[in-house]
């Protein structure tokens, strides 16, 4: 589904601030793969996501999504096939518009001049009810009135309303309180499993990294130093993972936000 070949990006080339954020990264994801990504500070996790989503032009390499070369496509074109969530829950929805209007915008069906139809509303209501947050009864209210957790759940719903080919989750539960984070994570798991969406997720929670999905990348200095899946992965504990990282990267995992349990 997603193929990344020799992807490289250097920021501020030729200056003292030169930083090789992505260094010849290559991997291939099959349809339905759910990859969790962990790594040290500045390892290039978010940069990899930004590169795939088209926030900047890469220096080298290719990105193929579902057989299509998207390396040079503008980000808003890529977004039709890629759903994306950020750490900041405020980033994914428009606070001044109602829940219903945000969903209509994300649904993306109909022409430019189509409005919200009754059938759309029913569909939204059904979907919102799955979140179990009571949002289905507040569809006319502006999104600005929702809590961070509710907004992140709504954003997740918006990102998957038309099933994307790729879902990108950049620590999307890190800014939420533990209980809400668990809830959003549970919804994430359900939605991804239901539609068999190919997913990339950055997390700082080592336990989550091993429990969720079917594959784990560990990144350091713009490389993927560890790529584990299948039986090898299922036997691994958090301590083993840290040891494997040390062997792969040649140093200890250095991340000030990491959660070991």
């Amino acid at each position: 589904m997603l193929t990344v070949e020799n992807l490289s990006k250097t920021f501020h080339p030729g200056t003292v601030d030169e930083k090789k954020a992505l260094n010849q990264i290559s991997f291939h994801l099959k349809k339905g793969d759910f990859v969790t990504i962990i790594g040290s500070n500045g390892a290039g996790k978010s940069t990899l996501f930004n590169a795939i989503c088209g926030d900047f032009m890469t220096d080298e390499g290719r990105i193929l999504l579902d057989g299509q070369d998207i390396t040079f496509k503008p980000s808003h074109v890529r977004s039709r096939d890629i759903g994306r969530l950020f750490q900041d829950p405020m980033r994914g929805s428009a606070p001044g518009m109602s829940i219903e209007e945000n969903l209509a915008l994300a649904a993306g069906n109909g022409g430019w001049f189509s409005g919200i139809k009754k059938s759309d509303r029913e569909k939204f209501r059904e979907q919102l009810a799955l979140l179990d947050m009571g949002l289905e009864n507040r569809m006319k209210q502006p999104v600005g009135l929702l809590s961070g957790g509710q907004r992140q759940a709504l954003t997740l719903m918006m990102a998957t309303l038309t099933v994307p080919k790729l879902l990108i989750l950049d620590e999307h539960t890190a800014a939420l309180d533990p209980a809400t984070a668990d809830k959003v994570l549970r919804i994430t798991k359900e939605v991804v499993a239901k539609h068999n969406i190919t997913t990339l997720m950055v997390t700082h929670n080592m336990q989550n990294a091993l429990e969720l999905g079917n594959r784990t990348f560990m990144m350091d200095s713009g490389h993927i130093v560890l790529d584990i899946q299948g039986e090898e992965r299922s036997k691994l504990g958090v301590a083993d993972l840290l040891e494997r990282f040390r062997l792969g990267a040649g140093k200890n995992l250095d991340n000030d936000r990491i959660l070991l349990s």
């Binding site: 926030d55 503008p74 808003h76 994914g92």
Partner: peptide
């Protein structure tokens, strides 16, 4: 209303 949201969505600002 939210330029950040639009930047990472399929809307072309």
């Amino acid at each position: 209303n939210n330029p950040d949201m639009v930047k990472s969505s399929s809307i072309d600002p």
